[in-house]
Computed example of a mutant assay.
Amino acid sequence: MNFIKDLDLTSQIDALILKPAEFSDFELLQKIKGLPFISVIDEIESQVSELVKMKNPTKYFSPSELLKEAEMFLSKFDKEKYGVWVYYPWKNSLVHLLPEEDFIAVRTVRNKYKITEEEQMELARKKIGIIGLSVGQSVAISLAIERSFGELRIADFDTLELGNMNRLRSSVTNIGIEKTKLVKREIAEIDPFLKVTIFEVGLTDENIDSFFVEGGKLDLLIEECDNIKVKIQSRLKARSLEIPVIMDTSDRGLLDIERFDLERNRPLFHGFLSKFGSEDELLGKLDTIKYEVLMAILDYEKISKRGKDSLQELGKTITSWPQLGSSVIMGGAMCAHFARKILTNKKVNSGRSYVDLDQYFNSNNES
């Protein structure tokens, strides 16, 4: 279909939001609806019912009363032109949703009062960058579910592989697709009004400035990549721009926070790299001391026993440091939690914390 090609929907990256009250969008809506392979999902009455309940919190509605209220509400409009329709080309699906403001209000209604209205509005103005989409995927989805950003910038050069799927929630139908594209799609299916900008080649010398400042400076960086050079470069950049950094390592529930926004001269990684000389010299000699730098970043003595056992097997029986889905999901949630606290100006200090479930419950006396 030429109209799909003209709209560049064949790339299957972006959801298309149609406002059928506008003539051109209504025409396009009819064309998409007419395609034989399109699945049309119209549950607008259910969403209006939720809207009615939200606006009348003290009133009890029986199911029949609520249905009547929703029908009365929709009778004021041309139902097909009410709200928005979202076309998801990768799913060949067309979904009818509430208008943006009402959609956001209903979708976040159960955030109250865990997140205040003022905090939710503040978060909607924030820009967050995520580098690396293993833990980073869980962080991104947690942030999107809570609606803790206005724009999310995600950087990863990799595609989904079968071996990723012990810790990345996805489908075998997505193997071979860029991780950035998959995360952007998943967020669009949760909330098509959230802005997600992708850097599908990862963070590079060429795009690092765009990632950090184009369209407005980042308010927070969440760094979850495997590349030691990028770990250091991204922190140097964040510090120069006074941007706080969060990292989770998926071992013993380690969460690392560097408040470069509050401490302009704070050493990278809390000074763990100072034994290698000045930060200016570090990148130049990184190739020869990469493993030692990694162990310093991870604080080797505090790595779990099984984590240390895994490190001993690198290049022998395994090719990369194992991560478990449970640890990645927990790390994603912790990063999202502290991201929200930092972005809403709650007191969060620099430092490292461990949420070690094995140690806490003394499971098999194993850390």
Results as ranks from 00 to 15, higher is better:
228 I>L: 15
68 K>M: 15
68 K>L: 15
147 R>K: 14
105 A>D: 10
311 L>M: 10
89 P>N: 11
110 R>I: 10
262 L>D: 12
350 S>L: 14
224 E>R: 00
28 L>P: 02
70 A>F: 13
214 E>H: 04
34 G>T: 05
169 R>A: 04
75 S>M: 14
94 L>W: 00
223 E>A: 02
128 I>F: 10
285 K>C: 15
163 G>A: 14
69 E>L: 13
31 K>H: 04
48 V>L: 15
81 K>E: 11
310 S>P: 04
238 A>Y: 02
93 S>P: 04
145 I>K: 09
304 S>P: 14
284 G>Q: 14
334 M>N: 00
308 K>W: 08
310 S>V: 06
219 D>K: 07
110 R>A: 13
202 G>T: 13
64 S>G: 12
105 A>E: 12
362 N>Y: 05
292 E>K: 15
271 G>Q: 01
275 K>Q: 12
71 E>K: 15
344 T>Q: 13
259 R>A: 08
346 K>C: 09
344 T>D: 14
94 L>A: 03
172 V>D: 01
312 Q>W: 07
255 L>A: 06
30 Q>T: 09
84 V>E: 06
69 E>N: 11
282 L>F: 07
35 L>C: 14
35 L>T: 09
222 I>H: 00
291 Y>N: 14
121 M>K: 08
29 L>I: 01
354 Y>K: 08
297 I>T: 04
310 S>C: 09
27 E>D: 02
206 E>A: 03
45 E>L: 15
2 N>Q: 09
216 G>T: 11
358 D>N: 13
307 G>M: 04
196 V>E: 12
248 D>N: 04
39 S>T: 06
202 G>A: 13
104 I>G: 00
282 L>Y: 08
107 R>L: 07
285 K>D: 11
58 T>G: 04
338 F>T: 05
307 G>Q: 02
125 R>V: 15
235 R>F: 00
104 I>A: 04
81 K>P: 00
137 Q>S: 05
328 V>H: 00
40 V>H: 03
272 F>V: 00
364 N>P: 01
30 Q>A: 06
337 H>T: 11
198 I>T: 15
118 E>D: 06
184 K>N: 15
78 D>E: 14
194 L>S: 12
154 I>R: 01
299 D>T: 11
67 L>T: 15
280 D>T: 03
258 E>P: 05
106 V>W: 01
95 V>K: 03
9 L>N: 03
208 I>V: 05
130 I>V: 13
2 N>M: 10
23 F>W: 09
309 D>G: 07
94 L>F: 01
355 V>E: 02
